[in-house]
Design a protein around this nucleic acid. Structure first.
Lengths: 69, 69
DNA sequence: TTGTTTTACGCGGTGCGTAATGATC
DNA sequence: GATCATTACGCACCGCGTAAAACAA
């Protein structure tokens, strides 16, 4: 499968899932599913959903610091 | 998928696919399929089939030397 | 209405076990 | 016949894309 961490990093560094999906050359739904899968695999919520915005929460921020290296 | 190299090493170190399948806690057909897949992935024949015996050939031997570490 | 995220659905690929077949002893 | 390897078959799982739905601006 496509690497979930790469997807996560790309999402964090994008302004939307749409933009991330373009960078990752995949569909928007897939990005949603990958993030959901990552959260489920780790059993950690990484983003808070506020409206249509995904806001990285402290857990997500911590993971991002680790994952980007 | 189960690691193909682990399967390969186990087969090499066993006297038969049956024995290997027992060590690997899987079925005989699966071991056959994994070896076939490894050979196909690498595009290298690893064993010569003589009767019901699988005999490691030079290519297989070389791979085994690399893989066992 | 437009742009976004999410869910629903179906498809193709993959690895598995069981069963059947083939082949050797 | 017994024992082994291989092939056939069906099943479950997974990741995908498209389509539909849900939701916010």
């Amino acid at each position: 499968m496509m690497d979930l961490y790469e997807t996560f990093i790309t999402v964090v560094e994008s302004s939307s899932l749409s933009e991330a999906s373009r960078k990752l050359h995949t569909s928007q739904p897939n990005v949603t599913l990958r993030i959901q899968k990552l959260e489920k695999d780790l059993d950690i919520v990484l983003f808070d959903r506020e409206g249509k915005k995904l806001i990285l929460n402290p857990s997500g921020s911590k993971l991002y610091e680790q994952a980007k290296n």
